[in-house]
Design a protein around this nucleic acid. Structure first.
Lengths: 237, 237
DNA sequence: TAATGCCTCCCTATTTTGGGGGAGGGTGAA
DNA sequence: TTCACCCTCCCCCAAAATAGGGAGGCATTA
């Protein structure tokens, strides 16, 4: 790789603390001459972790207003696989426009490139680079660094997963094949009776699987069990 | 990028048919002097799609025996984020050993490197390179090409997503804020009564939201609605 | 061998959802 | 303004799911 990022990438494995992680985002920002570099994620139990160069005021404001729920970047990344150039998103709603204006007020650049990263167990992370630049300059930057940034995002995510593994090693519940089938059918919208028929067993038996799965998944009811099974990746719709 | 793969990567956007996709796997195999290059995936409705250089006999055998359910490579990739070097996997069970022997019988090389790729809506794909080689040679190969292969896998996946999008262009339903809240609470395991209390409205009203969301999502029941909301990304966690 | 986990079936009772109806007031866009 | 969509509330009743409790057979494995 010709890239300026080669040395940076090789240094990532040595990142061992959150402070160091934070420092890495700052280093990358300076190396690339950007305004912001941010990595953040949401894990399967809704905990959030982030490191990056946004001002703490903006982060606080963002969390306070629960912008996660309307941020077009989050929305775009959630629905796509490929990196998202902010300019390509739909900023037409009033709320989105106001959000963008406010973000820029808080020192966020007008151009951004966010890479969605998906891990096991429904893990979802975002790696963002941000700057104030013309459309043409930004295009050129993305052309030059887009692919490398994907690799950097992945390396960051690998690190973040290591941190989590150390913190909260949550054992993925292992459902039996029949339990998986039962939950899968419910996720597809079948009633218990239909699912039982589909599996060629009595509804009573099916119910036992659902209950077992519910307990293994730590779920409060069937809907919750299906939700957890989906978001932890034990079933695929 | 210094890599031999630069030209190859630039050609991927021109891939427009499944035959061409297949040809691309063969081209990559030849370019890198490998025995096999395989891309395959499972989408959100359980359809499978694959292209690669494994013999059709091995693919048939694999599907017939439903090896998907016990293949250690699949298992490893499901649980991890980072690429999997086959040698690092747990091949200790009898079934796994027999599986590996059989695979080699069918012309699969002893060394493999598989990259898990996760997309929106629960999409999960695997990109595998495979060869017969010594451990040291294989290590060297992965050192040299590992990162580029991640990019190649992503480009393949982008193409595969385009193919699917052409097939089944499903418009993402737009739920109202209250509908989203309602569905989110249910996904968290609350009953209608609890969710209503949480939202400060009567249970009757909440029910109206659930029903509206159900219809918008084309769901057969509440559980189905939550499942669809999660897997299409309209709600998080 | 004993233990564990899986698969299958059954009971009763209570609680929760689902599918139909309604009604009124608000906001935003064409 | 009219139209559409959102938010809020209410009725009834049938259907489905939930929470407990059982039981036996069949693998695998410690």
């Amino acid at each position: 790789m010709k890239s300026t990022l080669e040395n940076f990438l090789e240094a990532i494995p040595q990142v061992n603390t959150l402070e160091h992680f934070q420092a890495a985002t700052e280093e990358l920002r300076d190396k690339l001459g950007l305004e912001h570099v941010v990595y953040h994620w949401v894990n399967s139990v809704g905990e959030r972790f982030g490191a990056g160069t946004y001002s703490s005021e903006w982060v606080d404001r963002y969390l306070e207003k629960d912008y996660l729920r309307m941020d077009p970047v989050i929305f775009g990344c959630f629905q796509r696989f490929t990196p998202v150039n902010w300019k390509q998103l739909d900023w037409s709603t009033k709320a989105a426009k106001a959000f963008l204006v406010e973000a820029i007020d808080f020192g966020v650049g007008n151009q951004g490139y966010t890479i969605p990263i998906r891990g096991p167990h429904g893990q979802f992370a975002l790696f963002t680079v941000n700057n104030t630049a013309s459309d043409a300059d930004w295009e050129a930057f993305i052309d030059a660094y887009g692919r490398d940034l994907i690799i950097v995002g992945h390396e960051f995510n690998k690190k973040a997963l290591e941190f989590e593994a150390g913190d909260t090693a949550l054992p993925t519940p292992s459902l039996s094949p029949r339990e998986l089938m039962a939950i899968s059918y419910l996720a597809k919208g079948l009633s218990r009776a239909q699912a039982a028929q589909e599996m060629g067993i009595s509804e009573h038996t099916l119910r036992v699987y659902i209950e077992a799965a519910r307990h293994k998944l730590g779920a409060l009811n069937t809907t919750h069990a299906v939700a957890r099974a989906l978001s932890t990746g034990v079933i695929i719709v």
